[in-house]
Design a protein around this nucleic acid. Structure first.
Length: 581
DNA sequence: GCCGTTTTCGGCCCGACTGTTTTCAGTCG
């Protein structure tokens, strides 16, 4: 079973315990264990009890539960808990504005166990007379249920970024605004974003807040105060604006960037040093305030190296920063090559020349044009690259390369489909002629994890395949990809010297951060490619870069962070070795 | 339920906003 599955079990237990009214620190312990397991680099279910207690946040009691679940697929503790607390109550946690305490109240006093029952109770006025409840709270709950039913869960990063940039720009125009920045999960480069967080400072926060909540797209003001306001836009997106005086801006930016777990760890660390940390700065034991206008001062005050936002997930970054041992993270300017682009020879929108020019203008030194093979279902009939087309396309690329030889190296590549049985879409003879072969799965993504794993392994072992494109499939979170046998996939990639790709299309973004980090740790070489189908989405490489940074990657982990001659040398070496197999 | 450079027991992050209260609880991030 996967770490993800186990992690979800522990979150479920935490939620049920919280509704039950269990000690909140016990609940916290389950939540921490859940996070810890989710981002653990190896397969937790294969560890012994002694090894498990070495994982932060796992003690004897939880280690026993992990072993029990790994061996039997069952957890007596959870079964018993689900008899005490109806699991249907968990869906109520999703309703904005109500939490475990109120769910417990509604359940115990009115017997409410489902969303429909809650709505009925609210409509018939049964909630109003409960302690702590009233008319407004009831109306809020009904609105929350409505919002939940309409709510689009999370937004892909590029959509959120567009909206956030626009709001940042707009607020920066307000008179007296001193700072305004995008924070939250967007700044941490999470692939999906729940809501947008903006932070700033201004001479008059009142004026900025008034401006913020009175914009034309605002359909609802969820809260409004001097330091924080929250709105819902007509497109359903929620935006929050946080303000603090200029001299506290750094603390605020740090706090709102999160993650929550990272912040909790920092505050615990502050306490150990006799400090209290909040979005307003530090307070010492004798109540002296320390302001941080610069975000870096928050970290330096705690004796830590500056931690880049993408690492702030409580996955060991605080310990590493304390030892001044953070990775030398890969940066935008390291990515001088892009090994996965499409043209109009398959389903791309632009010609080879247009793609090459755009790549050159964006600073790239080497690209691989890798159109789809004919079986890829993404191609329309007229977009299909047939074997007959290949020689014409190859010649066009060679001519273009000749023309541009001093400016850009252009590889004649292919993204060949991995067929349902693991064979490749084009015969070996055809594939041998390409400078770079990417093998990807677009077909049959509904196969079982076992079948998908087998297909990937067979491609990884194929001497003609240099790289696996978006391993695990396409679609946000590559649904089901969590369940593939990643340990075997990484081992095989290592053994056969096959690259795994981090795909930068914001709707795919896979490998994800956790798997990319595991891959790199097991020695697998990665690539971060744009998978651009138009000239303009060459720039979407920034999202793949975000994943790479979240995965703690350094330039050494990523082939296309090397200079062109090194990339060419690597491909040649690899092919020389494969030929000997 | 976890954890330990004062501790194997007694702690466990901190503040903003809302609504129902008249000093606070619940929710959220």
């Amino acid at each position: 079973m996967s770490n993800e599955e186990l992690s979800q079990i522990f979150t479920r237990i935490a939620d049920l315990l919280e509704i039950k009214g269990e000690n909140r620190f016990k609940v916290l312990a389950y939540r921490r264990a859940s996070e810890s397991i989710r981002s653990y680099p190896d397969d937790v279910s294969s560890l012994s009890q002694e090894e498990l207690v070495d994982i932060p946040g796992i003690g004897q009691a939880l280690a026993e539960k992990i072993v029990e679940y790994s061996q039997s697929g069952q957890l007596k503790f959870l079964n018993k808990l689900e008899k005490e607390v109806p699991p249907t109550l968990l869906e109520l946690l999703e309703v904005p504005g109500i939490g475990p305490k109120r769910i417990n109240l509604f359940w115990k006093s009115l017997g409410v166990t489902t969303l429909d029952e809650l709505e009925e109770a609210a409509r018939s006025g049964k909630l109003i007379n409960l302690p702590g409840m009233g008319e407004k709270s009831t109306a809020r709950i009904l609105a929350g249920i409505q919002a939940l039913r309409l709510k689009k869960k999370r937004y892909p990063i590029h959509e959120a970024e567009t909206i956030a940039q626009e709001w940042k720009e707009r607020i920066s125009q307000v008179e007296g605004v001193q700072y305004i920045e995008i924070a939250g999960s967007l700044r941490r480069m999470c692939p999906t974003i729940g809501d947008i967080d903006l932070v700033g400072s201004a001479e008059s926060s009142l004026k900025v807040m008034d401006f913020f909540v009175s914009q034309p797209e605002v359909v609802e003001v969820l809260s409004q105060g001097d330091f924080k306001s929250s709105i819902r836009l007509i497109n359903g997106v929620e935006v929050q604006l946080w303000l603090q005086p200029k001299e506290k801006f750094g603390s605020l930016l740090q706090f709102v960037t999160g993650s929550k777990n990272h912040n909790v760890r920092l505050r615990e660390l502050a306490n150990k040093q006799g400090l209290s940390l909040s979005e307003r700065g530090f307070v010492t034991n004798d109540l002296k305030e320390i302001f941080c206008e610069e975000e870096s001062k928050v970290y330096s005050t705690l004796g830590l190296a500056f931690i880049p936002p993408e690492l702030r997930e409580d996955r060991g970054e605080i310990e590493a920063a304390a030892k001044n041992n953070l990775p030398n993270l890969i940066q935008r300017e390291d990515l001088v090559c892009d090994l996965h682009l499409h043209s109009e020879w398959s389903d791309g929108k632009h010609s080879l020349r247009e793609m090459a020019n755009a790549a050159m203008n964006s600073g790239l030194k080497l690209i691989a044009l890798t159109d789809h093979s004919s079986s890829a279902p993404t191609s329309r009939e007229e977009d299909k690259l047939t074997i007959e087309d290949i020689s014409k396309r190859t010649q066009a690329i060679r001519e273009l390369q000749d023309e541009m030889k001093d400016k850009l190296i252009i590889l004649n590549g292919i993204e060949v489909e991995i067929l349902l049985d693991g064979r490749l879409d084009f015969p070996d003879k055809v594939l041998e002629a390409f400078d770079l072969v990417i093998a990807s799965i677009h077909l049959g993504l509904d196969q079982t994890p076992k079948q998908l794993t087998k297909r990937l392994l067979s491609a990884i072992q194929n001497p003609l395949v240099d790289m696996i494109g978006h391993p695990g499939g396409k679609g946000l979170f590559a649904s089901g990809a969590q369940e593939l046998d990643w340990q075997r996939i990484f081992a095989a990639s290592n053994k056969y010297n096959t690259i795994l790709e981090i795909n930068s299309n914001p709707l795919h973004l896979f490998l994800d951060d956790i798997h990319a980090r595991q891959a790199a740790r097991s020695g697998v070489l990665l690539a971060i490619n744009s998978d651009a189908h138009t000239t303009s989405n060459i720039s979407q490489i920034k999202y793949g870069l975000g994943i790479g940074r979240r995965a703690w990657l350094t330039p050494e982990n990523v082939l296309n962070a090397s200079e062109p001659n090194e990339v060419l040398e690597w491909i040649n070496n690899r092919r020389a070795k494969s030929a000997g197999r």
